[in-house]
Design a protein around this nucleic acid. Structure first.
Lengths: 336, 336
DNA sequence: AACAATTGCGCAATCGTTTGATCAGTAGCT
DNA sequence: AGCTACTGATCAAACGATTGCGCAATTGTT
């Protein structure tokens, strides 16, 4: 591994000079001729600053961790890209981890923050995580930004959930649906709460009755979508359309409809909040409301960087671009 | 951040003694009484060894990187779990990256290995990567284990692709199919080559003719599966069953069949190589051949650890557990 | 021409950990 | 008592990069 002193020897200067030149210290007093020789020498031997030495001296690793509940979820693809792009733009490396193994309070989380392996963490808490307990276990030890959730003492970033649910519902209303079901996440999930709120607003505004039976709280996974659909389709007065709180749940809704021989979209329209490539390949392809997840990731990194630099705790909502409806084949006017 | 000297002061001993006790140095000559005091002090102040200091001294980070083409692919879930479990068992942290941003030869890859951020890398090359070029850009700079591919000079681990394809094909033959299509990956992909080989073996053994028209080479993504299905279903003598080289491609096959109003499994059976939770939620649920991807991940870490410790380059095939057929609803006896 | 200010660069301490060398004290042996 | 052998613990030198400070040499000022 080529080090600073190798470059220094080759350029015929001291290590300090090399360090200053290569790190671009503006207050460094080094002649342009020397700078040139140093840069040339560094390039020739292929110098890269040793990570450990640098981290030790600077007490900074330029690593940020992104912890999500489930890496395989297509929804995290956009988020991950956003976080990674923003991290790279700041010269950081992104360390990605599943929250299953990287539970706050867990051994691995301890290592991450306790051993000073990361400068900060972007965390999407799992559904059902208690915010207060999370705040307690993280405490002062790590710089944290949460997404989709707010916990005391940490910055957070969310997407306009209510607006997205509203757009989805409005789309169905515009098509002529009057009995619209909602397949939501867990009751405890603040995201789910915001979404059902948007759904209710849209109904209210259209002068439609809000039947509580039409709202289910199962969760965000396929199986949860199936359960929601089963519940809604068993209703004496079955809905003609369903807003699913998430693409995965929507896939479950489609599966349950298929299993019950209910044609989509002829007998049942389905619209999902969030978009992902998986939505294009279901049958029928899913109408979605696309959320600014890429920007969510970027914003989270911005918030994290500010917090690391000692900035105040902030709570942001990503509202650009707005949630937008992506019409596909799973929605149509009701049959009747 | 509490450090060694803090623990030492609290226990009333030198830092060296603390270091030796806590790192469990067997050759250390420290009395049991002192050991106890040190451990107690460390626990009381919540000591974690500083990552940077340790890495600097030991020239080892205990971080391994896993680089895959696409994080959102459900197939990587098992692999990732395997790598992570094995890494944790060795006291390592896993850094996960998309190969898109972490291309060997790219800036980020350079930082990873050049700055000494990782001890080694488990890499799944993207389809179409030239092995020789990969070997050249990585060179001596990083300890590497590739999965699914072999490149000169690096250890590798693969799964029994031929056997899996063979099991899938045998399943269809047992159901009574005689005209079986193959929706393969890219021709350049060695994985795809091995799979088509297994497919051919099964046909041969059953005494069925191997029609080259029945083999397509589009790729592993949904769209590729659709293209493969379109090609196969347009054949004058259409196959009654298709072996898809991968779950995602199989989803594409299902979508294309739906689009053409071809009923699965009544008019067309579909079996996918690999299993993933997504396969349970397609319509109809996909019959799959489950591959030992978790073990692939574990084995890759074992191979990497050996290579890091200076062991020889090895090439392994994970053959325990064997590929096993998971029957679901997408396969049945042919209609005729 | 004398002095101050500035430029260009190197010295050496520092970050936290590990580890070979060292040293004082005690026990064992003759 | 005199010697060796061992025990229990400390000292100090690394690892590689950063940075405040100091020291010449040069330039600028009067």
């Amino acid at each position: 591994m080529v080090k600073l002193s190798d470059v220094a020897a080759r350029a015929g200067v001291s290590v300090s000079a090399v360090s200053r030149v290569l790190s671009g210290d503006p207050s460094a007093r080094v002649s342009e001729a020397t700078r040139e020789r140093v840069r040339k020498a560094a390039a020739e031997v292929g110098y890269h600053p040793n990570f450990a030495g640098r981290a030790l001296k600077l007490a900074r690793t330029d690593v940020i961790a992104l912890i999500v509940p489930d890496l395989t979820n297509a929804l995290f693809a956009e988020l991950t890209r956003g976080v990674e792009d923003a991290a790279v733009a700041r010269g950081c490396v992104m360390l990605l981890a599943r929250s299953e193994v990287m539970q706050p309070g867990g051994k691995m989380f301890d290592r991450l923050v306790g051993e000073g392996r990361v400068d900060g963490i972007v965390l999407q808490p799992r559904d059902g995580t208690d915010p207060d307990e999370l705040a307690r276990t993280v405490g002062e030890r790590a710089t944290l930004v949460t997404i989709h959730h707010r916990i005391p003492g940490a910055s957070s970033v969310v997407v306009p959930d209510a607006l997205a649910a509203r757009r989805a519902t409005e789309h169905l209303i515009a098509l002529g649906h009057r009995r619209i079901g909602f397949a939501g996440g867990l009751t405890a999930s603040p995201t789910a709460q915001r979404r059902v709120e948007g759904y209710r607003e849209a109904l209210l505004e259209a002068g439609l009755p809000g039947d509580p039976d039409l709202i289910t709280w199962h969760g965000y996974r396929e199986a949860d979508g199936e359960a929601s659909a089963a519940e809604l389709l068993a209703l004496p007065q079955r809905p003609t359309a369903i807003v699913a709180a998430n693409v995965n749940a929507a896939v479950g809704v489609l599966a349950e409809a298929q299993a019950q021989d209910i044609a989509v979209p002829d007998d049942l329209s389905v619209v999902a909040i969030h978009d992902a490539w998986t939505a294009e390949h279901t049958w029928p392809p899913l109408t979605c409301v696309r959320m600014p997840l890429y920007e969510l990731g970027r914003t989270a990194v911005t918030a994290l960087a500010e917090a690391i630099d000692g900035g105040p705790v902030t709570h942001r909502t990503v509202d650009d671009p707005e949630p937008v409806l992506v019409p596909r084949a799973s929605t149509a006017a009701p049959a009747s």
